[in-house]
Design a protein around this nucleic acid. Sequence first.
RNA 1: GCAGACGUAGCUCAGUUGGUUAGAGCGUCGGAUUGUGGCUCCGAAGGUCGUUGGUUCAACUCCAACCGUCUGUACCA
Length: 536
Amino acid sequence: MAKNTPSKLKARLPRGFVDRSAADIRATEAMLAKIREVYERYGFDPVETPAFEYTDCLGKFLPDTDRPNAGVFSVQDDDEQWMSLRYDLTAPLARHVAENINEIQLPFRSYRAGWVFRNEKPGPGRFRQFMQFDADSVGAPGVQADAEMCMMMADTMEALGIPRGSYVIRVNNRKVLDGILEAGGVTDSEQKLAVLRAIDKLDKFGEEGVALLLGEGRKDESGDFTKGAGLDSAQIQKVLTAVFINKIAIDYASDETASEAEKSSFNNPPDAKGYLSNRLLCHALLVNADEGGIPLEGYQELSQIADLVDAAGYGPDRIKIDPSVVRGLEYYTGPVYEAELLFDVTNEKGEVVQFGSVGGGGRYDGLVKRFTGRDVPATGFSIGVSRLMSALKNLKKLQADEVVAPVLVTVMDGDTESLARYQKMTQELRAAGIRAEMYQGNWKKFGNQLKYADRRGCPLAIIQGGDERAEGTVQIKDLIEGKRLSGEIADNVTWRESRPAQVSIPEADIVATVRRMLAEQAEDRARQDGDAGAAQ
RNA sequence: GCAGACGUAGCUCAGUUGGUUAGAGCGUCGGAUUGUGGCUCCGAAGGUCGUUGGUUCAACUCCAACCGUCUGUACCA
């Protein structure tokens, strides 16, 4: 017999993309709400741009004829213009501001959450579609705008339930890195990039690894060789000293010189003997830079940020000046910052994974100017919502209060008059604000209706057959309690006939009874959660 | 992009020095039980062994290419 479906279509998800479950969506929504609340409180307003932009507006990735989709997903419009799916939310914002520059009142403070797309190799925790949540101040030239961004990031982390000490916002300045390279005699742009990449690998390969990458290169465990930046040993030393200064020369503040913010961060993390002072660190950086012949402007800006956040009560446990922060290679022109989690993140297999940053940003003074020709300084940051969510799952800080499944109104008789009665009961429950649904499958198999309710996690089932209707009652079955009782009954006939956890009530009392039973179940859940919490 | 490992049922995995008809557990569906979930028992469906080509009397097994997954690495706005 021939196969009747010879060319059955295979259902498959494109690699690097995921379907999202109800639980994921609800958790994401909860996170977005918390982030939004912080941004709103800081006086930012929502603005949204579309997923597609003309490719030339997005930045450096102009489709070339060989690989038009390298890095970004691109398509050609009817008129042959190249369009691309956005790969971040910053470039589209710059386009929006430039296009509406005459209507927009600067400084323009806005936020947006949205999906972005990158056409690159997916890996664990790395997808080709993921969500970012950005906030930007456009037309804000001073470092006070950058300092504000850092503080807002810190507040956002805490609003999401990440305790102080479990995250840190690290701040650097692109001008610092440029200055170091300049003083080190690194002028070739390829070489500059190689140096920045090497510095960025600190958390992955350690200081020795970075030193190798700054020099000849480094061989990884599989024997693959990565070519280095080719600096000589004097240059390497200069770069390492300037960049890793707070690792090399840890300079703890004494109580006499500490600010209130620094004092409040004392002993946090708990076993720390003292604390690094952002202000003293910046002082040391300036002195060092001066001696090393490195331009001072970047350091002066960092120093201002240190003073600003300190005065606002943000200690180095929350916002830390760190000259090793690199942050992307493209459009940043001044302060750069990134949010890092300080607790271990484990994957499904229970292994600790390198997590990296969960958000970052910086000053991009040139981005709007590309369109307008006039200086429009801007600064902003982005939170990687998808990444952060997988980390929060770990910390058990995800919105835990599960949405309770609907009450199921079962169907005993399928004639229109009966169906109308069931439908009316369902609507009465809904009108009372109770999630409810009428069984929509094959009603003739009553066992399947309860099986459905069980697997769906329904808390209650409403049952009214001919007998109940004749006496004007309904049965309400507590499926949670019934499940518990099932453990005590081995024989199926007894199990069926005993109708466990089932009450008979007058039809008029459905809403009140359902409401009461749901409340009781909620109390039970709360008690169990409490017990579980206490046991930990 | 580069290197390596892997690819057998919806899932987790057996298996074959190349030889009739490829197995198990779990899951799914049906029945025992036409008005009651779970347990138990009985039964069924589900595979061109990743794809294509090659070697061979014979390929799930050997070879090649491709596709996909995973690991490392490169790139990462």
